[in-house]
Amino acid sequence: MSTSMMDETLPTNIEKKESKLAKIGQFREIGLLVFIVILVIAVQLRNSSFLTLENISDMATNTAILSILAVGMMLVLVTRGIDLSIGATLALSGMIVAQFVSNHSGTSPIVAILMGIGIGILCGLVIGGLVSYLGVLPIIATLAMMNIFRGLTYMVSNGKWISSYQMPESFVGIATSKLLGVNTLIIIALIVYAFAIYFIGHTRTGRQIYAVGSNPESAKVTGISEKKVFIIVYTLMGGLSGLSGVLWVSKFASAQGDTATGYELSVIAACILGGVSIAGGAGKLSGVILGAFLIGILNNALPLLNVSPFWQKGIEGSIILAAVLLNVMVKRGVERNNLLKRRV
């Protein structure tokens, strides 16, 4: 029996609709950018104090920390993991460093920052070890360590706050000073981005992170060590959280036991908005930074629009949910289109 005959007698009762959603997948960053622009214009029309230089720089400094953490979280998510402990790591590093500088007022800001990074790296190493060498699920490991780090923060502080008057001016200056007319926080964030661009795109290890996330089986056959990759991503995440701890305490000029509680959720939201795939393997720095900015703008714009601050969490939750569902729909659309292309 010949095929050609079969083809001619084929009933064509199958609906052959191409999914339009699939197109969104190709233009995610641009789409996000357009969305941000529209949002900014809308907010500006409602409240003209939005696009003032002061407010913009305020937004940028606020978003700086969020985006630094999002860079690390992106790598964790790319390996199909998650890190819920970053808020606690941030608090612990911020608290220890704040105590140290309040007792040693001569500490150079650079030393303080390095100290924070060091503490964060230690925290990240513990998690990386649990996940890679003991095979603990990332959600369980980081949930447990979140509690432990948070508890340690309270223990270290004895339940007391460290306030601005206890901190040396040079320390508070980390977040408030300017370098070449640009806020230091923003400069630090830019340095982190630059480092990330190089690390992710131009080193073997950076690409191995994506390889493990994209196809762990192949990675094994290629001889890439999954354990090494896990250790690296959680340690990096820890280091960035530690850095953020110092920046946070310096910016808000106070270190508390409950600093940044639940901040990990905003960070994860930024990543998901930025198109990082929860299934691993995919995630672009540009997307994640845009995602962080969107969250930052929303947080800044809500009070200006007279939206109660208590709506913030609800909106954030809805956005995450909508973003993950959109991701799935786009993916399904792409798959459906691929199937339609296959001639049966």
Binding site: L265, W311, K313, G314, E316, G317, I320, L321
Partner: peptide
């Protein structure tokens, strides 16, 4: 994780 934020958000 998303509904965790959402549910508490609605409570707020």
């Amino acid at each position: 994780l998303a509904t965790m934020i959402l549910y508490r958000g609605i409570a707020y």
